[in-house]
């Protein structure tokens, strides 16, 4: 039972971050391409992050109903900011010399994005994904209040019946999960950064 709860929690995190990448990456690219929409996109992502996560889930529940879908939608919205912002940042920070060379060589706009800009921006984009993931692990705890289950449910239950074991199990699993993800993804990040940087940048 306990393992399945951890997996349930993890599933919601992964699904939400995945959706967030799916939505956030194009939004980040759009912000990089179009100066006009950039302000709007970054502003909306900013505002979403300021809404208390519990309230955000509650609002979505009213429209979608209780359950995991609500949680996934909520956490997706909540994770957008780091992914959109880092995508935009990563793309704009690609060495201007490299961008000019790509243009001067005769790469089309799309080819440049796929073969030069995105690969070079990837380490920074990945940092955004790591931040989003670690945040989501904590935020998914609120899933319990909208009927999503997960480790949050065990902690709530433990609080209600004053069972120290349940509270401790939920909390420690959450902490362990966050730490493992942070360290693992941090490791990948350093390797990505090392690959592209050297005497030249």
């Amino acid at each position: 039972m306990s393992v399945s709860i951890i997996l349930e929690h993890l599933l919601m995190v992964v699904a939400a971050v995945f959706c967030s990448i799916l939505v956030g990456l194009p939004l980040g690219i759009a912000s990089y391409f179009f100066t006009r929409v950039r302000r709007i996109i970054l502003f909306v992502a900013d505002v979403l992050q300021t809404v208390p996560s519990l309230a955000l889930l509650g609002i979505i529940m009213i429209f979608v109903g209780a359950g995991k879908t609500t949680v996934i939608i909520g956490i997706t919205l909540y994770s957008l900011l780091p992914i959109v912002r880092n995508t935009y940042l990563g793309l704009s920070e690609v060495d201007p010399g490299v961008k000019e060379a790509a243009r001067g060589m005769g790469m089309s706009r799309f080819y440049r994005l796929m073969h030069v800009e995105l690969p070079l921006a990837f380490p920074i984009i990945f940092t955004g994904i790591r931040i989003a993931t670690v945040n989501a692990i904590g935020t998914v705890v609120f899933a319990a209040s909208v009927g999503g289950g997960g480790l949050g449910a065990i902690i709530y239950k433990g609080i209600r019946v004053m069972n120290m074991k349940w509270i401790a199990f939920g909390t420690l699993s959450l902490m362990a999960m966050a730490i493992v993800f942070d360290i693992a993804m941090g490791g990948i990040e350093t390797r990505l950064n090392r690959k592209f940087s050297g005497p030249s940048n």
């Binding site: 060495d95 201007p96 010399g97 490299v98 961008k99 000019e100 060379a101 790509a102 243009r103 001067g104 060589m105 005769g106 790469m107 089309s108 073969h115 030069v116 690969p119 070079l120 690959k195 592209f196 940087s197 050297g198 030249s200 940048n201």
Partner: peptide, 28 residues
């Protein structure tokens, strides 16, 4: 885009693609 492929271009910032090897850079 077609025009630029027929004209070589070298810049002061060098601008090699850091994610590509020498061979990949040469054959862009």
């Amino acid at each position: 885009v077609q025009l630029r492929r027929r004209i070589g271009y070298v810049i002061q910032q060098i601008g090699l693609f850091p994610n590509m090897t020498v061979a990949q850079n040469i054959t862009v």
